[in-house]
Design a protein around this nucleic acid. Structure first.
Length: 110
DNA sequence: CCCGTGACTGGCA
DNA sequence: ATGCCAGCCACGG
């Protein structure tokens, strides 16, 4: 166990939120952290996703606040970029998507 | 137990 | 506008 108030539940919550991101939409580490009540826990979200490789969630839809695919190194080859392009998400740079255009806020969860 | 590391971020130079 | 820096906090060595 850890000395925080979240423990393993925190990761579960992260996975649940990520699983709700609609196709063709993206969100950020910070947005998820904020939604879970930990404004400064963006890094923890990233850490959770790193450990989520077998959770079967669309982790490729989580980017940093600038829309950069900072987690691409954790996917095989260009899997992260390829999946996003397959969802018709537009890029402004080779590894940067139009975050403004596709941003999905966790609070909009249906 | 201390220290470095990181899928981050906001603020300041 | 661009870039650097200091907080951030769980984890592993």
């Amino acid at each position: 166990m850890t000395n925080n108030n979240f423990g393993e539940d925190f990761y579960e919550h992260v996975y649940r939120v990520v699983a709700e991101i609609p196709e063709g939409r993206v969100t950020t580490y910070g947005a998820i952290a904020s939604y879970l009540g930990i404004a400064s826990g963006a890094r923890m979200v990233g850490y959770a996703l790193n450990k989520s490789h077998k959770a079967g969630i669309p982790a490729h839809r989580v980017l940093n606040r600038l829309g950069q695919l900072t987690g691409r190194a954790h996917f095989p080859d260009d899997t992260m970029r390829e999946r996003l392009q397959q969802e018709n998400i537009s890029f402004t740079e080779e590894y940067t998507v139009d975050i403004e255009k596709h941003f999905w806020n966790p609070n909009e969860m249906s």
